[in-house]
Write a protein that binds this DNA or RNA. Structure first.
Lengths: 337, 337
DNA sequence: ATGAAAGCGCTAACAA
DNA sequence: TTGTTAGCGCTTTCAT
């Protein structure tokens, strides 16, 4: 760490004690610091460019001004939306420490537990965990204000902001059914995250209610890079299905590419639906029919919940609905050769 | 912060002093701690679940295990690539604290200075700053190991990893010239970042060498959201130009949408080129002709440079070339009505 | 209204 | 080889 100006330096210049500087800095000046001394301190702080040492403050008070945000993968724009929501709700007195699996941790699968552990050792005052995996949440110290985003459930002592996938999934099923589809396939992410498993489960229920069945075993991928997805999809996709549902938007881009490479046009010869619906969904060609998840909103919600929690408020659980946005990537069931 | 087990607790149980615990924890046991005491400490640490308090360590040693990464905007996937590169080069003993402008800071323009200040008060051992603005770098304390990414220049005491835009820009000019374009327009981002200004400057030089001129005043935007970009482009684009160059890929998506909305097909009636070339460039329709910037590689480079700098190595400056990737969004000059 | 002093949990220099 | 002591920079309680 770099040698910096300390409260003692300021005190020396202002002709008072470090304690007075502390009081003044923290605005606890009422009935404690006279105006003259206050003014001298102000001048000295200004002149010396004094900035309190957070580490010392933290050690002294036992309170950190750091909020930690743990998320599984840098590659999902999804987390940009959440982050944007969170930062809209917290003020500049907080430090936001983002923690994600390191590259080698990700390569050997997951790494989110390790990421959480690293986040914890920074001694945060509050914690936000996005799209956690099953085995992670038991690491969260009870007593640490925590909000979990995008999971079915969380420990008692954690606030929770989650999606209700039921309406979105029901709409997908109704939409595909109306278009005559009866045999579909599912492409998912190979991670044990609540949110992913639930999307699949709600979808399964909804499709069953419409007598639509999965005609291929699910394709589970561990990577969302479009080119890698495209390769795997090419080997998997057969003429057994007339529609494919992707558990996440990121997978759909590769699926579209693969489908076209195989000579099956979208939506002419294959319909494609996804979950997530971020900005690119409406930009690609064909634009993507997708279950919209209000992600910026859930980020704001999480930010609010954490702020209130850290301030001593109660644990809250909020659920926001999803809905289907129909675009160009779905159409009537193809007549198969 | 949660009440935790301290070294004193461990010492009490092991029948030694806190100092011995510290030595043992830090592996400085040679000739200092006997095997018997060491074993008792090990047992006590184990039984009590002792984890050293980072804050106290940091205050005591003056050394933090935190690396700070400052970047201007969550919305650029660009930074995901960099982050991916950085995390490939650092090990788990480091905490990586990401800092970006808060939402309200961004709204009133920039906020990157504020973000840097927030990063600094965490007392990082090293610093990476991506795509800085002109007035930021003077805030960096000399003596703090720092690497600047994606800027023309940096203070003496900072390492620098930058792009050479000259080859990319030259290729753009040659490509457009060969296709017969003579009048073009430029869409940029309204931020005083070196990288953006330099892209524009190198492009200007290169086009001039090919007698291609800017037939419209540059359109400078403060937002990269495709829908907002599209609106502004619609008002700006005229038949004076047959090709448009975007300073960043993110702008091109909106530009394509706007162009098509105005009834000018791409590339039939308008050619489009961008800088940056991230994954979506090859996925959208038409795929984007773009100046490729090796961003993951520059992230790794930065990670290496910082690691070596923190370990006492020298300041380094590295420059990586850019190159044009020709795809579908450019074609022969349109015959204008 | 002000100053002195203790202590947060750890490390490092010192003495024993 | 071990134990003691003095800080790191700040906050806070207690005298003055």
């Amino acid at each position: 760490m770099i040698k910096r100006v300390t409260a003692a330096d300021v005190a020396a210049r202002a002709g008072c004690t470090p304690a007075a500087v502390s009081l003044w800095i923290n605005g606890k000046t009422a009935g404690r610091i006279s105006d003259q001394v206050g003014e001298r301190i102000r001048e000295a702080v200004e002149a010396l460019g004094y900035v309190p040492n957070r580490t010392a403050q933290q050690l002294s008070t036992g309170q950190s001004r750091q909020l930690a945000f743990v998320f599984p993968d840098v590659w999902y724009t999804f987390f940009s939306y959440i982050l944007d929501g969170i930062t809209a709700e917290i003020d500049e007195s907080w430090d936001l420490a983002l923690t994600m699996p390191l590259r080698h941790e990700r390569e050997q699968g997951g790494g989110t537990r390790a990421a959480l552990q690293r986040a914890l050792r920074g001694g945060p005052a509050g914690l936000i965990i996005a799209s956690p995996e099953r085995e992670m949440l038991d690491l969260v110290p009870p007593g640490l204000p925590t909000v979990v985003i995008d999971a079915d459930s969380a420990p008692e002592h954690c606030s929770l902001a989650r999606y209700d996938f039921e309406p979105g999934a029901a709409a997908v099923a109704a939409h595909l059914s109306a278009a005559g589809h009866e045999r579909v396939g599912y492409i998912g992410l190979d991670r044990r995250a609540d949110t992913l498993l639930t999307r699949r489960a709600r979808l399964g229920d909804a499709l069953e209610a419409h007598d639509i069945r999965f005609a291929l075993p699910d394709l589970l991928l561990d990577n969302i890079r479009a080119d890698m997805v495209a390769d795997r999809v090419s080997d998997w996709l057969t003429s057994d299905v007339t529609a494919v549902i992707c558990g996440d938007e990121s997978l759909a881009y590769g699926a579209i590419a693969a489908s076209q490479r195989l000579g099956r046009s979208v939506p002419g010869e294959l319909s494609l639906v996804s979950f997530n619906d971020l900005a690119p969904a409406s930009l690609i060609e064909p634009s993507l029919t997708s279950v919209h998840m209000p992600t910026y909103e859930i980020g704001r919600l999480a930010g609010q919940m954490l702020a209130s929690r850290v301030a001593g408020g109660d644990v809250r659980v909020e659920t926001v609905p999803t809905e289907l946005v129909v675009r160009e990537s779905t159409g009537p069931r193809a007549v198969l050769r």
